[in-house]
């Protein structure tokens, strides 16, 4: 793989900065990171690239609590509008919430989605990237 396309949807600018720093330190190959501050703008971008697979993210990290459109609403939109090919894209909820309701929501969602709790470390993030790269599921 030459370049991995990752998208982060999060309204917390500090976390976005730190996430970017983490990605920049990934040693194995270069990564294109795109960041959206809310679900609405992320959905718009995915709609625009619906039929352009090379512009779609391969790994998608979504925060839950966001203005305009929250993480669950964005996932529903992606699913309903078939904005991504779910077989090729790995999606994560990435949230500081440790609420059982949020965790349960991720398990019973359609489709069920992996849940990463903030803070994110090198280890966690790089393991997911490596797992995707070797096509080995690690979470769920």
């Amino acid at each position: 793989m030459n370049k991995l396309r990752i998208t982060l949807v999060d309204d917390d600018s500090i976390f976005c900065f730190l996430f970017k720093k983490l990605i920049e330190q990934y040693p194995n190959f270069s990564i294109d990171l795109e960041i959206f501050p809310d679900g609405y703008s992320a959905a718009e971008s995915l709609r625009n690239n619906k039929n352009i697979p090379q512009n779609q993210p391969q790994l998608l990290f979504i925060d839950i609590n966001m203005p305009l459109m929250n993480g669950w609403e964005l996932l529903e939109t992606i699913y309903n509008e078939e904005l991504l090919n779910n077989e090729q894209v790995k999606m994560y909820i990435i949230s500081s919430s440790i609420s059982k309701a949020d965790l349960d929501h991720s398990k019973i969602g359609i489709p069920p989605i992996s849940y990463l709790t903030k803070p994110i470390t090198f280890g966690t993030l790089f393991r997911e990237i490596e797992a995707y790269n070797s096509n080995l599921p690690t979470l769920n």
Binding site: D12, I14, F15, L18, K21, L22, I64, N65, S95, S96, S97, I98, S99, D102, T117, K118, P119, I120, T121, F122
Partner: peptide
């Protein structure tokens, strides 16, 4: 609970990530 589980954890988890960085 929502405030504790999410809002308060957000800056704390950021702090830990900043320290790691």
């Amino acid at each position: 609970n929502q405030i504790l589980a999410h809002n308060l954890r957000t800056p704390i988890s950021n702090i830990e990530m900043i320290i790691n960085q």
